Simulated assay, not measured.
Amino acid sequence: MMANLFSSFDPTTFNYLSLNWLSSFLMVLIIPPMYWLIPSRMNMLWILMINILHKEFKILIKKSNFKGSTILFSSLFTLIMLNNFMGLFPYIFTSTSHMNFTLSLSLPLWLSFMLYGWLKNTTHMFAHLVPQGAPAILLPFLVIIESISNIIRPGTLAVRLTANMIAGHLLVTLMGNSGPSLPLSLLNILIIAQILLLVLESAVAIIQSYVFSILSTLYSSEVN
């Protein structure tokens, strides 16, 4: 029995050691078997997905000489998607529902983009702070607004992913806890609703990883 509703999101297993975060490495046990037989169906599906992502990211980067940067964002998509799916299994810790995981992904990416942009393309970065054709009297306010919107980008990336993961898992937990108190006639409806919700959560797991990687690609394209 849960002492509180948010105890399922508690990252601490023991007082001094947290083993729940090892769930992030469970994917290592799943990925290698599909390479024992090549080309396998799983391997072909995986290559097809990576190729589609590569084409999407290459269009967003808008540079002919992208030097394999799409590999970084494809790997980011894979990491987040697999961690999202791991959280859908019972008794497996959902690492993407915590800010210290999502912020650890978004903040270093954003900082590296900003450092590269301000050191290599300083004039281009200053031009981004002032929208083209803006009235001169509004320029100071526009610079402040653009700077704030730029600074909060890693936070919005992290919060978007965390909030979507927590919302679905809380709904699943609430519906599951109401099961013992329901009459038998309503129990079938609850089971069907839980299955539909898990299907929705599977779609959210893919969509949120795609949104995170696409936005990261867009942020990187702005500094070039």
Rank of each mutant, 00 (worst) to 15 (best):
L142C: 09
L139G: 02
R160N: 15
P180N: 15
P180Q: 12
L142F: 00
S178F: 11
N188H: 05
L186V: 03
V130Q: 00
A158F: 02
P154W: 00
L182W: 06
H124A: 03
N164Y: 15
P131D: 02
T162A: 07
M175L: 14
S181Q: 11
Q194G: 03
T122N: 09
G155V: 08
T162H: 03
L161V: 13
E146Y: 04
L157G: 05
A163C: 02
A193F: 12
A158R: 04
L171V: 04
A127K: 06
G168N: 00
Q194E: 10
I137S: 12
S185I: 11
P154A: 05
H128L: 13
I191N: 10
L142E: 01
N121Q: 04
L129Y: 05
M165H: 08
P183E: 13
M175R: 07
N188F: 07
F126Q: 09
G179K: 09
A193S: 14
I144G: 05
L161S: 09
Q194K: 09
A193K: 01
N121A: 08
E146I: 00
P154L: 08
I151Y: 14
H169R: 12
K120W: 04
P154F: 03
G155T: 06
L190C: 08
L184S: 08
T173W: 03
L157Q: 04
P183Q: 10
P183S: 13
P180T: 13
L129H: 00
P154R: 00
L161R: 05
G133A: 06
N164H: 15
I145H: 13
L174D: 11
G179Y: 14
I152A: 12
T173N: 10
A163Y: 04
T173V: 01
P131T: 06
S181Y: 13
L161P: 04
L129A: 08
I137R: 10
N177Y: 15
T162E: 10
P135Q: 12
T156P: 04
T173F: 08
R160Q: 15
N150R: 09
A136T: 01
V172A: 00
F126Y: 15
I189T: 10
A167S: 08
L190F: 08
N121H: 14
H128K: 13
I151C: 11
L142T: 01
H128T: 06
Q132R: 00
P140T: 01
Q132N: 09
T156S: 15
L129R: 01
V159N: 01
L170C: 01
S149I: 13
L129S: 06
I148Y: 15
L174R: 11
T162R: 04
A163G: 01
A163E: 07
T173Q: 11
T123K: 11
L129I: 06
A193C: 12
T162Q: 12
L138G: 06
A163M: 06
